[in-house]
Every structure is written in structure tokens, then in C-alpha cells.
Design a protein around this nucleic acid. Structure first.
Lengths: 115, 115
DNA sequence: TTGATATTTCCACAATTATCGAATAATTGG
DNA sequence: CCAATTATTCGATAATTGTGGAAATATCAA
């Protein structure tokens, strides 16, 4: 299994869980400024230790970023990682056939790279 | 947790596994005509019973479709499900801000619906 | 320095997921 | 109908993942 596949599996696995999916969408909507761990815990109503586990999981997977501001740790969604993910899944869609079943989904093919 | 979230978690979980990720990409590249279970098993070098487990998993999750042709079962990728997935993840990106960090990823927002 | 705030790490336990050989089912050609 | 082909289900086992209270770590304000 190549390294790109490993990264993609980690990212997909990080998103495939109730709390983490809600968390990612929350951060997507929060935009660049992100949210503190505490604010996220309040918004999602998840115990701090559980949330911390999930946040660490997502950071390891490279789909969220973290920075410290004072006592708070601020998390934000990594949009580039998201694009790369979709690019990997749809790579070489329909073997490059022009008249593909789903041209819209297929057309996103070669625009992104997994880091 | 709403129904859309459940479907998305199942789809993401279905993709977040070594063999299933390889399988999905194989089907994406195969296009509309799809591939038989046997052909997939050969291509991926996975025991038949294991592959069957993964194929069933993916069909349940709604990211691949199945039809019978003679003795063979033909599987193909569901592109629409893929689009819906990305749409859900990026919904209301950056709270609708025009000058979003990643306009390209964000712009895919309201074009798809989870069934 | 001390006390309060913000968050993580540790740990033990529960729950889910993956593996694959053997047995079973569905389909077809002769 | 029968043998061959194609693929699934069963079942026992191994491996991974999620949970949350309690203790530890980092930061700051006074």
C-alpha cells in the first residue's frame, strides 16, 4: 500500500465517526478563525476527554490544524486536505473517457495532490 | 444524529479501509460498465470471502451498485453518492463568506444532496 | 507564587470491525 | 439433470476503535 493511500485512509477514517463528522462540519462552517476546544465541546456536548481524543485523531490525520492562543487551543478545518482527498478518490475517473457517466464529479480529477 | 449524517458516516467508513479504498478507485476507473466480483478479486489479490465482505459493506453504504449478469455479479461506483458526500462535508462552508480561504473547495457546497 | 482556567494524557473496559477457510447458494452450458 | 463456475454466508478469532473519570500539564492574571 502506498503512502498516499495510507494518508487518505486516515483522513476518511477520521471523518467516519459521529462526533468527528459533526466536529469537522462545525469547523468548516467556522472558517479560517477556527474554534477553541472548549467552544467545540460546548457546541457538540461531548466530554472533554473524549473530544480531546477525537481532535488528536483528526489532527494526526491532517484534516484539521491546531494553534495555541493563550490558554486555548484553536482548531480549524484543512480545506486543502479535503480537496486532495476527493482528487485521490476520483483519480483517472472512467479511465479518462470524455463522455463519462458523471462528468461533474469526474472533472475534479487532476486538480489536487495528496501531500 | 440525523439520517443524512448516518448515511455519510457509513459511506466514509466504507471508504476508510485499505481494500475497500483500492476497490472503489478501481471501480471509479472502470466506469459505467463496472467489474465482476471475480475480476476485482484477481485485480486486488484478496480472498473471495474477504472481498465479498467488503463489497457487501460498500453496497450497504450506497457507494457502489450491483447487478447480476449471468453467473457474475457486476459492481460499479456510484458517482452521485460521491458528490453528495462532498456536498455534505462542505455545507455552508465558511458560514457563506464570499472571500473564503479556499474558494475552490467551498464553492462545491450547495450542488448536491444526500439522498 | 498561587489559584483559576483550558485542555490533554492515562487507563481500563466496551463495542465494533476485519480475516479467511469451509460450507452453501445461484446460474448456466451440455 | 449434472457438473462446473461464480460468488455469498457462516463462524471463530484477531485487531482496532471509542468512552469518560481522574490525574497531569500548560498558561495566565493578580
Amino acid at each position: 500500500m502506498d503512502q498516499a493511500a495510507v494518508k487518505v485512509i486516515e483522513a476518511l477514517g477520521a471523518l467516519a465517526q459521529e462526533h468527528r463528522l459533526a466536529l469537522f462540519r462545525l469547523l468548516v462552517q467556522a472558517g479560517e478563525s477556527g474554534m477553541s476546544a472548549g467552544a467545540i465541546a460546548t457546541a457538540l456536548d461531548v466530554p472533554a476527554s473524549s473530544l480531546s481524543f477525537h481532535l488528536a485523531h483528526m489532527e494526526r490525520a491532517g484534516i484539521v490544524q491546531r494553534l495555541r492562543r493563550g490558554r486555548s487551543l484553536i482548531y480549524s478545518a484543512d480545506y486543502a486536505a479535503m480537496s486532495a482527498l476527493v482528487g485521490y478518490l476520483m483519480e483517472n475517473c472512467c479511465a479518462g473517457d470524455a463522455n463519462c457517466a458523471s462528468s461533474s464529479t469526474c472533472s475534479t480529477t487532476e486538480e489536487s495532490q495528496v501531500a
